[in-house]
Simulated scan of single mutants.
Amino acid sequence: MRGLKNKIAVITGGLGDLGYATGVRMAEEGCRVVLLDIHSDSDNRAATIGAYFWPVDISNEQAAQFACAAVEKEVGPAHILINTAARFVFKGVEATAEDWREVNSVNIGGTSLMAKYIVPQMKKNGGGSIINFSSVSGFVGQLNFATYNATKFAIRGLTKCWAQDLAPFNIRVNTLCPGYIYTKAFVDSCVKLDLDIEAENERASAMHLLNRQGKPEEVAAAAAFLASDDASFITGSDLVVDGGYLAK
């Protein structure tokens, strides 16, 4: 991808399968990568790809502000922000106020706080790229997914508003919308919902025209494209990487 070499890329949820795969790809493209995650990097996965790492709860404004300031001080002003961090709360009308606080605090609040404190750095650089992770769940209704889907619809709305707000500063804002991707989060969700993992994988695979779930690396490639100069005329858009899920 053109224009990524030596760019500073900040990735939230950086130890999750999607975030880490994106970090790997951005490092391969020559970026200086910063991984942020609420979990500690006990296995030194960041070091494996030559990335920086800070543990942070992005739903906490003070913590998010501190992490972003640390990025600028230790690495430099960021050019790219990729928001992959998410809470997975799957509830329907029975959702409690606490359920809503939990899912909104990261998926909407954390995404917004990161943009708030990274955008000034991008302005110093004369521009940048923000990529917010939504989902096919941000386009359709799904059974007992109201809490999660509401945040993914909201992320698409945030993206389109920010694209307008930040265009004068040459900051592009786009949404990446994966279909079902076989990740640890998928497995954990099956366990949490007491579902058979293999049966659920087969069911999810059949939802896609390509008859399989996607791979984290396939989503990471799309993120690298949106961050690069090859996507220089793309802003306020949704890039769907779903194996044909929404075409069915």
Rank of each mutant, 00 (worst) to 15 (best):
E72H: 09
E72G: 10
V75W: 13
G76Q: 06
G76A: 04
P77G: 01
I80N: 07
I82H: 11
A85G: 11
R87V: 12
R87W: 03
F88P: 01
F88D: 06
K91H: 12
G92Q: 00
E94D: 10
A97R: 13
W100K: 01
E102Y: 01
V103D: 12
N104M: 14
S105G: 06
V106S: 01
N107W: 01
I108Q: 09
G109F: 03
G109T: 14
G110S: 06
G110L: 09
G110W: 10
S112G: 08
L113N: 13
L113F: 14
K116Y: 00
K116N: 02
I118R: 06
V119Y: 05
P120V: 06
K123W: 05
K123F: 01
K124R: 14
K124C: 00
G126P: 05
G127T: 08
G127W: 06
S129K: 11
S129T: 14
I130R: 05
I131P: 09
N132V: 02
N132Q: 07
F133A: 02
F133S: 01
S134T: 12
S135A: 07
S137D: 09
G138W: 00
V140Y: 11
V140T: 15
G141V: 03
L143M: 14
L143W: 11
N144S: 11
N144M: 15
N144C: 11
F145P: 00
A146K: 02
A146F: 10
Y148E: 02
T151D: 08
K152M: 03
F153D: 01
K160N: 06
C161P: 04
C161L: 14
W162T: 10
W162I: 03
A163H: 08
Q164H: 13
Q164A: 15
D165Q: 13
L166N: 07
A167C: 14
A167D: 14
P168N: 12
F169W: 12
I171T: 08
V173E: 14
T175S: 15
